[in-house]
Amino acid sequence: MKSSAMVTPRPAREAVSNASPAKVAFGGVSFSYPGRQALSGVTLDVPERRVTAIIGPSGCGKSTLIKSINRIAEIGTEVKVEGRVTIDGQDVYAPGVDLVDLRRRVGMLFQKANPFPKSIFENVAFGPRIHGASRAGDLDQAVERSLRQAALWDEVKDRLGTSAMELSGGQQQRLCLARVLAVDPEVILMDEPCSALDPISTARIEELIEELRERYTVVIVTHNMQQAARVSDRTAFLLNGQLVEVDDTETIFTTPADRRTEDYITGRFG
């Protein structure tokens, strides 16, 4: 258990600016829903195998920002996107982009744990199955590996057949993480993944994020400033759909360049 991370600040990490190539890049991205502009002119590099936190007050466009990467923001509505969102240099909004492939590469954890009303096993096996895995051995392996990665295996290994709905909220969120990991993504998006969880469950998710950064590029939206400080390498501050500032987390929380950033993280507004 590393719940002590809740109180003691994380030891300073090496500066990551320019240290890691950009996995995801926003180039002057403006994003609007019918009658509402959510993002305007956002330019932001998300370094590979690092944790990038997006902070900002409610309605500032944080969720839209990450949901524009895996193109979930456009489901069930019409959107207008200007500028470029790229993964490994490839524009995800280019015509002919395979959404199935894009979303396999970019997994997502939602605000509220949303396991399917199926068994624990079937939840994790869902991704591999839709992407064509059918051999029982392969599925068993993928399920065990993902559940171990999500630190859930020991708690559920004897009851893989029971409904995922019987798990606690924290376990459900880790199950959702396992479900994401099972399709072997490169980027993992998290939209306030702990907002509905108690402190202990939150700490466990944060520990997992710590481990994930070794293999995956993580982008996490959070309302919780301490969380951003604890888990992320880079922090971007968003206000009214515009990027105010992005820098190493250390810098943002000690010597922010912009007055508005300072006001926000010291709790003067938002």
Binding site: I75, V100, R103, R104, G107, F116, G127, I130, H131, V183
Partner: peptide, 9 residues
């Protein structure tokens, strides 16, 4: 949403 986000058609 969860299903789409996992790459399901």
């Amino acid at each position: 949403e969860a299903s789409f986000a996992l790459g399901a058609t």
